[in-house]
Design a protein around this nucleic acid. Structure first.
Length: 597
RNA sequence: GGGGCUGUAGCUCAGCCGGAUAGAGCGACGGUUUCCUAAACCGUAGGUCGUGGGUUCGAGUCCCGCCAGCCCCGCCA
């Protein structure tokens, strides 16, 4: 529908310009064109598209809007190309022009979709390097729900961008550098030295406990604090023993992270904060050379423009601590500089997307501003913070376990799978079905993980979202199980003798449920383009949900296998394209589908 | 004190560039199974879009004020 809409828009604009040449000339003089304001019809009874462009012209032209609409429609009538696409335009309400695409055009579009492995979604003409920075857990800490959101959303956005043909670099900016390692290594030297010399001497759970102890000592024990700072200096200076210990700790955490990524089917390349260590001094030097660096209270600062702090004073971004050390702002600046720098010295990215929680919005605004002022962001490049809200429990507060601890990602996924399995077993008993253990395990895993992912992706990421196993695993509503079930229904039709790969040369539709499904299927390209632009996966979820509802209505009211011969092929084609669309759409969300469940 | 985000049906949420009578789902209530998995479908009830102004032919959407919740604000990330 994307190309169709573009064609219609061009024809409408031309008609407006012919009908009101003076207004068109005036608009052009002001550097714009008349806008037909073409949009999808707000209700099915209005047709496929509505053009609202007549209304804003009413005042400048001093004419009633319906009269303006009539003039535009009269010009459209003189254009045979439009009549080939649409039925007679209808003027409605205060002056909307409603357009209904000719059924034979819709059927032709549908046939083209069926023949296209990309289902009508075009690839970008000039693929650029796009970096998606997501997940980014911290070494020696458990992954938690905050990382889950970043991981799931980042992966989905990367998948959409990849599908559109961009060259995507998925980066895991893990927290593997900095003060916390001084603490941890110093503490381990005293209580568990074997962990610093032998792989696998401790597991991540132990490491997390050690980290907690180390943090506590750091906050209360001054000699320990001093020893930790010395250890950081040794590490950052490249001391072999410190580096070895650091490497072991990272390996330990890395294995745990990888286990999670494997379960979630996430591809990501680790490039942690330590990667930028050699660049940090140069970053500060560059800022100094650019005249941006100010030493204030011993710390190296860049004062931000347009942002004031507590007493109306300008707010600094601290890039070098008073002890000479660097912090996360320095690392983020080094990263942005490297990512946007041309190859081979950098990544040569044209677009960098940071998927982190909304709480970091002002941090990134500061980093972006400094990078821009330092001249590190080329004119044609863009950097975007893609923020997301908190994961909350049923109480509306940050999600915690009953004992008040952070929820471990592993436990959360386990519980989702376990609940999905319990649901399945209950249904099997109710329906008197007998299935193999392997089947049940496969379904439980797929449904459980899908439910967690979909729940996260289906709400607008900017708002906080309430985590609820009951809601995400519900079999109806805007949930993964509901969508997966629609795919299963179609697979059932194929299994019972429907040849989904059959001939689609002559598609014929009669029932309103068929046309509703045709129209819904044709929206895919528009939705994908929107997600790429707005970076909002929930738009795709909303579309897939709507598609399933339309399909289920069709399935309920229109027989497929028992359809009369002349309708059967067309209905099977609808089923095939619906399944393909759902598989593609869910695939872009990182969710695999099932044949039976 | 400054800044950001949020506030829409009992609950969880959509709502695109400002467009027609504000939409889903859940829950509630009432229906539908000789038929491809009823994990479905159909219907009913449910709204002062936090609040007060403003801009506009038209505001849930844009602007200003206020209220409430969450988050950030010099050497953690």
């Amino acid at each position: 529908m994307l190309r169709l809409a573009q064609t219609l828009e061009a024809q409408l604009r031309a008609a407006m310009e012919r009908a009101f040449p003076a207004a068109a000339a005036e608009a052009q003089a002001a550097g714009r064109a008349l806008d037909p304001q073409l949009a999808p019809a707000s209700k099915p009874e209005f047709g496929d598209f509505q053009a609202n462009g007549a209304l804003p012209l009413a005042k400048p032209l001093g004419l009633p809007p319906r009269q303006i609409a009539a003039a535009i429609v009269a010009e459209l009538a003189a254009e045979p190309a439009l009549a080939e696409l649409c039925l007679e335009p209808v003027i409605a309400g205060p002056g909307f022009i409603n357009l209904t695409v000719r059924p034979e055009r819709l059927a032709a579009e549908l046939a083209a979709r069926l023949a296209d492995p990309r289902l009508g979604v075009p690839s970008v003409a000039d693929p650029g390097r796009v970096i998606v920075d997501f997940s980014s857990p911290n070494i020696a800490k458990e992954m938690h729900v905050g990382h889950l959101r970043s991981t799931i959303i980042g992966d989905a956005l990367a998948r959409v961008l990849e599908f559109r043909g961009h060259r995507v670099l998925r980066l895991n900016h893990v927290g593997d550098w900095g003060t916390q390692f001084g603490m941890l290594i110093t503490h381990l030297k005293q209580v568990a030295p074997e962990a610093l010399e032998t792989a696998d001497a401790v597991d991540l759970g132990d490491l997390v406990a050690f980290y907690r102890q180390a943090k506590q000592r750091f906050d209360t024990d001054e000699p320990f604090q001093a020893a930790s700072r010395e250890e950081v200096v040794r590490l950052q200076g490249g001391n072999p023993l410190s580096l070895k210990a650091w490497g072991l700790l990272c390996d330990q955490s890395r294995r745990e992270f990888q286990a999670i990524y494997d379960r979630l089917a996430i591809q990501i390349n680790e490039r942690g904060e330590s990667f930028y260590n050699p660049e940090l001094q140069a970053v500060v030097d560059d800022l100094s050379a650019a005249g941006l660096l100010v030493v204030d209270a011993g710390a190296g600062c860049v004062f931000l423009e347009g942002v004031s702090g507590k007493d109306g004073q300008p707010l600094p971004l601290i890039v070098q601590k008073s002890d000479g050390g660097f912090n996360y702002a320095t690392t983020d600046l080094a990263a942005i500089r490297y990512r946007l720098a041309p190859q081979p010295a950098g990544d040569g990215a044209q677009r960098v997307i940071y998927v982190t929680d909304a709480g970091q919005a002002s941090h990134f605004a500061g980093v972006f501003q400094v990078a821009r002022r330092a001249g590190w962001i080329p004119a044609q490049a863009s950097v975007e913070h893609v923020p997301f809200g908190l994961v909350q429990g049923d109480d509306g507060k940050k999600l915690k376990t009953r004992s008040g601890d952070t929820v471990r990602l592993k436990d959360l996924l386990d519980e989702a799978v376990e609940r999905a399995g319990a649901d399945l077993r209950r249904r099997l008993v109710e329906e008197d079905r007998l299935e193999a253990e392997s089947f049940m395990a496969q379904v439980a895993t797929t449904v459980g993980i899908a439910a967690v992912k979909y729940a996260d992706l289906s709400t607008n990421r900017i708002t906080n979202y309430q985590f609820s196993f009951d809601r995400m695993l519900a079999l109806s509503g805007n949930t993964a199980p509901y969508l997966l079930y629609a795919v299963v229904r179609i697979a059932g039709i194929a299994r019972k003798g429907g040849d989904l790969e059959g001939d689609v040369a002559s598609l014929r539709f009669g029932e309103p449920q068929e046309w509703a499904l045709v129209r819904e299927l044709l929206k895919l390209d528009v939705v994908i383009a929107e997600v790429e632009q707005e970076l909002l996966p929930n738009r795709l979820c909303g579309y897939l949900f709507e598609l399933c509802q339309v399909f289920n209505r069709f399935y309920d009211q229109v027989p497929v296998l028992k359809a009369p011969p002349e309708a059967r092929g067309s209905r099977l084609a609808l089923c095939r394209l619906t399944a393909a669309t759902l598989k593609l759409g869910l695939g872009l969300l990182g969710i695999p589908t099932l044949e039976r469940m």
